[in-house]
Design a protein around this nucleic acid. Structure first.
Length: 858
DNA sequence: GCAAGGTC
């Protein structure tokens, strides 16, 4: 039996399809897909299936001095047990093994990990390596016709990175965490990629804090030719002879403006015209894709997650790529052809095909990993995708269109005129030829109209303005800008950069969007700069890259490189150990600042966000135990203190970070007061233990006795901030119904006949409309008529049952409906379904997509 | 429980 190993299941399936001529069948072993045909088996890994770590005796942070990690051994352990098990099982009986992981350094390392697993159980089987940069019939077939050997040196380069990153990251992370006594979930982390990224953000924040605004003036005049007016701006030549518009001195500005204001005419001094070619953008790599999606309002994380869904569904190519040059295998005309006749893209495709020749643009980066991101020939209908998915899909399609479209042409018209000794200029631009903008509407193509004037012509001044302005501090980096910066600095990879930024949020280093560093972040960067400069510098990565290249080219040895890195870290630790207490104090100080809300209303000490022994968060006084003042916090996620301060209590507001359900909680004292007011509005009898519930409670197996009756239903607000309708006899009776977290609850006079409860109406609170989170479906302006809380809950459960399939990524409401018609209602139905038959029954659902869902369902 | 890198 011949065994083929790929980096991921998706690649395994597609390669099996290509090599078998679509005859391969999927067989699940240990929950892993194995594709088989003839005497062949193909298995997909899940990236790295083994990972590096220290031996278990180093596990307890308190028992080990961080410096000891420098010389600790580093071991490889399986991290994906079931895949490793299945691979070993197949390898035992293999007569030949082909490693077909991705064509990049990490792919070579993943290939070597597979090689080692195979060798453990089969000493003699020949193992070959194939390389291809896109999973197309031509590339894959020719790769398998010309197999190569695994490149152990290249893999070793990757191993060096693993070891060095682990040792530096773990030793420094533990050192900082221990010296600041931050051990639980809130350890203080440091790493080769995350720390330089954090420094980038902190440096920008320092610039902003140090920024001293300067006042300046700008002047404008509206000139008119015939009936056409246009704006001109005052400018002068600075010391270097460059055009400058800002006047830094008030007196000078006012003097000039007096001249301008009192004039009635300007004379055209020069008119210059030039045309500029505006070339279409290069194909998408990951970074540029994230940037473009960012300008549509998607966070890096969200953009990638949507792209991954579109990829798994087969609509776009692999979204993690550095490549900006289409491979020879891609025939743009052929791909355009598949869009002909499409409702949304057909006309644009027709237009592009009419061009004389189709020559795609190329970016600077040409790599072997994957093709640039482009649509595949499998085109979804709009209904098959969610709104966001469609938005992103359209972006990818249109970007592909743009790369094969013609250039645009602009005409720039510059008119310089004079008023006495003052000069004015107007820059006009006009789009002469739309070119690629016709198919790619994401760039700004606004024109600025300046009429045709001639030298020497007099124009009347119809209005003048002087504007008093201030220089602005530099802007914070947005997420996509950060990712671009990281790419330029050479840190992180196409697959990890967006996660790194997320990690910085999760670690309590960043807040808000665009990200702002916390005090802790600033202290960590400062400490690293003072004692371990290398770990916040891009130099570390650059030197590592050089070492890795040397290893890959056989000029250096993995062990030597790792050892010299250990030596450098050891000298770093010499300095660190000396200042351990000072560093710890600084970190603790900034940690406290990040937790401080403001003065305690009882004793005036600082109120802090604290964590109970059980792990839940609350507000407590720094004067504890002398002062025992506390306030509750929601126990949903992690609280984050904002800069906004409550005017009534002088306390900073709190935001609760809970992934996608992150929300602003506000001032905890205000919330506590509100909760007290809103407490326990009684709306009726408890259906489980109320007076009238006697006959029903007989169903209870425990046989409740009569004195345990008399419960009433009340609207309650829990300390966590969530609300519910619950029984007043809680905890003896645990009957409860859910209520929405937000909005004011009105108890109306209408009553539900069936349950004898009042109908409820939820009014939106307008002050804090979902900050940045647009996922709330019910945040319109209309109040929500929730109705009887029992009826509402029953309807909710009904709906939830129906949409059981929608928990799977890629299955929307419409698809779920279609599947239900084919008798697939639940996850179990889906798992049992025969993909081939279902694909025939259900329109628009391919076998591939179904298999994919089935895999997810497990 | 530490990193960064794959992938889900």
């Amino acid at each position: 039996m011949e065994l083929i190993i790929t980096e991921k299941d998706n690649a395994a399936r597609r390669i099996a399809d290509i090599l078998s001529g679509e005859s391969a069948e999927a067989d699940r072993q240990n929950g892993v897909n194995v594709y088989k045909w003839g005497g062949k088996r193909c298995i997909g890994l899940s990236g790295h299936v083994v990972g590096v770590d220290f031996p278990p005796e180093y596990n307890d942070w308190r028992d080990v001095e961080p410096v000891e990690l420098i010389d600790a051994s580093v071991e490889k352990q399986p991290t994906k047990e079931n895949i490793v098990r299945t691979l070993r099982l197949l390898a035992r009986d293999a007569s030949r093994v082909t490693i077909a992981t991705d064509y990049d350094r990490e792919g070579e390392l993943i290939g070597k990990e597979a090689w080692e697993l195979v060798r453990e159980v089969n000493e003699d089987v020949p193992i070959q390596r194939v390389r291809f940069s896109s999973i197309t019939k031509n590339e894959v077939s020719s790769a398998f016709e010309n197999p190569d050997e695994l490149d152990f040196d290249l893999a070793a380069a990757g191993e060096a990175r693993q070891i060095i990153d682990l040792i530096w990251g773990a030793a420094l992370t533990r050192f900082l965490s221990l010296s600041a006594r931050q051990l639980g979930n809130d350890f203080i982390s440091v790493g080769r990629v995350q720390s330089p990224t954090l420094k980038l953000i902190v440096d920008r924040e320092r610039e902003i804090q140090a920024f001293d605004p300067e006042e300046y003036w700008e002047m404008f005049a509206d000139l008119q030719k015939d009936d056409e007016a246009f704006e001109s701006q005052y400018f002068y030549r600075d010391e270097d002879g460059n055009e400058a518009e800002r006047v830094w001195d008030e007196e000078t500005a006012e003097k000039a403006y007096e001249t301008l204001e009192s004039a009635t005419q300007a004379t055209v001094d020069s008119v210059s015209r030039r045309t500029r070619t505006d070339t279409p953008p290069a194909p998408f790599n990951t970074t540029q894709f994230i940037r473009a999606a960012g300008s549509l309002g998607y966070s890096a994380q969200r953009a990638m997650s949507i792209a991954e869904d579109l990829y798994t569904a087969g609509y776009i190519t692999y979204p993690r790529t550095d490549n900006t040059v289409y491979p020879d295998d891609l025939d743009p005309e052929e791909l355009l052809d598949t869009f002909v006749g499409n409702y949304h893209f057909g006309d644009d495709a027709d237009g592009l095909l009419e061009q004389d020749d189709i020559e795609p643009t190329e970016g600077d980066e040409e790599t072997t990993d994957h093709p640039p991101i482009h649509p595949t020939e499998d085109i979804p209908t709009k209904g098959e995708l969610g709104d966001d998915e469609w938005d992103v899909y359209e972006l990818v399609v249109r970007r592909f269109f743009a790369t094969v479209a013609e250039s645009a042409k602009w005409e720039h018209l510059k008119v310089v005129s004079t008023v006495d000794d003052l000069t004015l200029k107007a820059n006009g631009k006009r789009l002469l030829k739309e070119g690629y903008h016709a198919v790619y509407p994401y760039f700004n193509t606004s024109e600025n109209y300046v009429p045709n004037v001639e030298e020497g012509e007099d124009l009347s001044i119809i209005d003048t303005r002087i504007e008093d302005k201030q220089t602005q501090p530099p802007r914070r980096y947005g997420q996509s800008r950060l990712i671009e910066k990281m790419e330029k600095m050479g840190i992180g990879t196409k697959s990890t950069r967006h996660n790194t930024i997320q990690k910085l949020y999760d670690r309590g280093y960043l807040e808000s969007d665009p990200p702002r560093p916390t005090r802790l972040a600033q202290a960590v960067v400062k400490a690293a700069e003072d004692y371990a400069d290398l770990v916040v510098s891009e130099t570390m990565t650059r030197e590592l890259e050089e070492d890795m290249t040397a290893i890959a080219e056989g000029e250096a040895d993995l062990e030597d490189v790792a050892d010299s890195s250990r030596e450098i870290l050891a000298t770093v630790f010499d300095d660190l150990e000396e200042s351990r207490e000072e560093i710890g104090k600084q970190l603790q100080q900034s940690l406290k600042e990040d937790k401080t809300l403001g003065p305690c209303p009882e004793c005036g000490e600082d109120l802090l966000v604290r964590q109970s022994r059980r792990g839940s968060y609350f507000v407590g006084c720094d004067g504890y135990p002398d002062c025992t003042y506390t306030l509750p916090l929601p126990n949903k996620g992690k609280p984050l203190i904002l800069d906004e301060t409550c005017e009534d209590h002088d306390l900073r507001e709190v935001k609760i970070l809970a992934g996608r359900s992150t929300f602003v909680h506000g001032c905890p004292l205000c919330k506590a007061e509100e909760a007290e007011e809103a407490e326990d509005r009684i709306i009726g009898e408890c259906p489980q233990c109320g007076e009238g519930a006697g006959s029903e409670s007989q169903r209870d197996e425990g046989g409740e006795t009569a004195e345990e009756h008399g419960g009433e239903l009340a609207i309650k607000k829990l300390q966590t901030g969530s609300r519910l309708v619950g029984c007043t006899r809680y905890p003896d009776c645990d009957y409860s119904l859910p209520l929405p977290r937000r909005g004011e609850i009105e108890v109306t006079d209408e009553r539900c006949e069936e349950h004898d409860l009042p109908e409820l109406v939820i009014h939106n609170d307008t002050e804090q409309s979902s900050a940045g989170q647009s996922d709330e479906s019910d945040d319109g302006d209309e109040p929500w008529e929730l109705g009887c809380p029992i009826c509402n809950y029953e309807e909710f459960k009904q709906r939830e049952r129906k949409s059981g399939l929608e928990v799977i990524d890629g299955i929307g409401a419409k698809t779920a409906e279609k599947l239900a018609e084919a008798g697939i209602d639940t996850i179990d139905d889906l798992k049992d379904a025969e993909a081939e038959t279902v694909a025939e029954q259900v329109n628009g659902v391919s076998e591939d997509r179904l298999r994919n869902w089935q895999a997810k369902a497990d």
